[in-house]
C-alpha cells in the first residue's frame, strides 16, 4: 500500500509543484503552512525532505518494525518532536505541519491512524 501510495504521492507532489508555478492555483487552494518550530536544521536538505520524506519514513519503518533498529534520525517520533505545533502540540489540525501540506497536495496520510500526532517532549531527538 505504502509503496503504491509513495508513487502516487510523488506524482501528485510533482503535479502540485507544477501547478504551483502558476499563481492562479494558489488563489483557489489555501497554501500549506510550513512553520518550523524547533531545531536548527532538519535531518536532510529541505528539497530532499519535500521529495523523499515518505521514502525515508518507509525505510525506517521496516527497519524498526522488523529488525528492532530504533535509530532516531528518520523515525516518525523524531519528526513529530520537532514539527508538532507549539500551540496544539500536534502535527495535525488545520495548520498542522503534516496535515496542511497533505491537504494542499490532496494526499491521504495513513500514519496517524495509529501513531500519535502529539509531541512527547521528553526525548527531543536531536537530528543526527
Amino acid at each position: 500500500m505504502l509503496r503504491i501510495a509513495t508513487g502516487i504521492m510523488a506524482a501528485v507532489l510533482a503535479a502540485a509543484g507544477f501547478a504551483d508555478s502558476g499563481e492562479r492555483r494558489a488563489g483557489r487552494v489555501a497554501m500549506p503552512v510550513v512553520k518550523i518550530e524547533q531545531g536548527e536544521a532538519c535531518v536532510a536538505a529541505t528539497e530532499e525532505m519535500r521529495r523523499d520524506h515518505m521514502k525515508m519514513l518507509l525505510h525506517q519503518r521496516d527497519r524498526t518494525m522488523r529488525q528492532g533498529l530504533r535509530e532516531t534520525r528518520f523515525s516518525l517520533k523524531n519528526c513529530v518532536e520537532c514539527h508538532a505545533s507549539r500551540e496544539t502540540g500536534s502535527v495535525l489540525g488545520k495548520d498542522g505541519f503534516c496535515s496542511s501540506c497533505h491537504a494542499y497536495a490532496s494526499v491521504r496520510m495513513d500514519c496517524f491512524e495509529c501513531h500519535t500526532p502529539l509531541r512527547q517532549g521528553r526525548t527531543a531527538g536531536a537530528p543526527r
Binding site: 517520533k77 513529530v80 495509529c114 501513531h115 500519535t116 502529539l118 512527547q120
Partner: peptide, 11 residues
C-alpha cells in the same frame, strides 16, 4: 483509537 502512546501505535 485516540490517545495512543508514542511507542505503541494502535488503530
Amino acid at each position: 483509537v485516540s490517545g495512543q502512546k508514542a511507542d505503541v501505535p494502535r488503530g
